[in-house]
Amino acid sequence: MNGSRELILGRVRDALGDAGEAEALPPRAYRRQGTLEPAARIELLCERIGDYQAQVRRVGAAELAVAIGEAFAAEGAARVCVPGGIPPQWRPEGVELVVDAPLTLEELDGVDGVLTGCTLAIAETGTIVLSAGPAEGRRALTLVPDLHVCVVGEDQVVETVPEAMAPLAKLVRAERRPITFISGPSATSDIELSRVEGVHGPRRLIVLIVNKELQ
């Protein structure tokens, strides 16, 4: 075991015998900051999420609970799992909420959907990012149920991938949080390259973008 470690590191050092010609630090001439105004940024996010065949809706904070209830009702979801830390004002009428206390995998497989928040969203790629925060829950929650409704605050939206990585790096270093990037519902193009949405993850993704200013 230890022998293998020394063997590989020795081989690496032998192979690099000629090193010392390492280049300077990697150039970072790529865009590290977006340029869009907030309104345009949100619009870009909506458009890009829509391109993935996910549903996107913009709602005011006051109507959020109603919008959540409608989203689940429209998909025929009556029993929905939620992480322990979702804000009380998100709780919709007419939908039974099951708190992950935690649920077993069988129980999780038995609910009709899941409701979570997110850590941030990336407009340019139409990506929502979860990091197991209180309103996001553990990773299995957004994986096993067939329907995922995700609430994104307008203030959580960044424009580019690099803008997302800085805050995520902090979460990883400080708390070692697991992180999941979600860009549309799961998909495969393995059969004749025709895209099929929904293989193993949730087949339906609904993103509700909340205008916090209405709060």
């Binding site: 139409g126 197991a132 990037f181």
Partner: peptide
């Protein structure tokens, strides 16, 4: 623009 899922994990996360 982005693949549907990217998973990043660091060691073991309790629970």
């Amino acid at each position: 623009r982005m693949n549907p899922y990217t998973s990043l994990w660091t060691g073991v996360t309790p629970g």
